[in-house]
Design a protein around this nucleic acid. Structure first.
Lengths: 105, 105
DNA sequence: TTAATAGTTCTATGAATATCGAACTATAAT
DNA sequence: ATTATAGTTCGATATTCATAGAACTATTAA
């Protein structure tokens, strides 16, 4: 059984989180995950990006501490580490996602 | 008399702002500017980065809409476009700077 | 007019990043 | 055992980025 490593909450860095969020693809992934709770990757095919590219973005999100990934069978279930992020960087995720909702592009 | 171009408030993009803030050097510049109000560059020599490198970072901050620069004599005066940012992306700058204050690194 | 000051712009470089296709891994279904 | 599924990892590429030194520009001071 494979296990995926995640950074500890205390080790999360603000700059890494901001960097992860500064990519439009990743920002919309996070937005989607927040909206749907848990989610496997199949929902993100609308990006018309290669599987390996999506995998890369999920990895960046995971390593920055933004998301958690668990394996269920052949599926990878992702979820936003919302509580931990809120406790480390209060208000950051909420304000970013709120501004993202109002975006033009 | 030289004049520096700035993006219009309405054209600011969330991802560009986040990207600009995701660099440690630029984040600390913004922090310093918020703390001091207006400021010329001379205060940032503590970074031990080349003049041209600092100039690059100020340019990135300016083009993302985070700061405004005016020229007074031979000095360049920078200030954070706080009100405009707050109106476009409410809470983002405040929460980021607050988290930055509590950082370990 | 000449020199000093403050910062930009240009050019170069090494590192990081977004992207993809191909090969691989692990689980589930037949 | 074979095949299908879901996603990772690897290798390559093209782009962007952080950095620096050298040359340049604009203003002020002498």
């Amino acid at each position: 059984m494979k296990k995926i490593p995640h950074p500890r909450k205390e080790d999360l860095e603000l700059c890494s989180v901001l960097s992860a969020l500064s990519d439009p693809v990743r920002l919309s992934i996070v937005k989607e995950l927040i909206g749907r709770g848990e989610c496997n990757c199949s929902f993100f095919c609308g990006f018309s990006l290669a599987k390996s590219t999506m995998s890369h973005h999920f990895k960046v999100l995971r390593e920055s501490g933004l998301i958690m990934t668990t394996i269920k069978g052949t599926e990878y279930i992702h979820s936003v580490r919302k509580d931990e992020l809120d406790s480390m960087f209060p208000g950051v995720l909420d304000s970013v996602l709120k501004s993202y909702d109002k975006r033009s592009k």
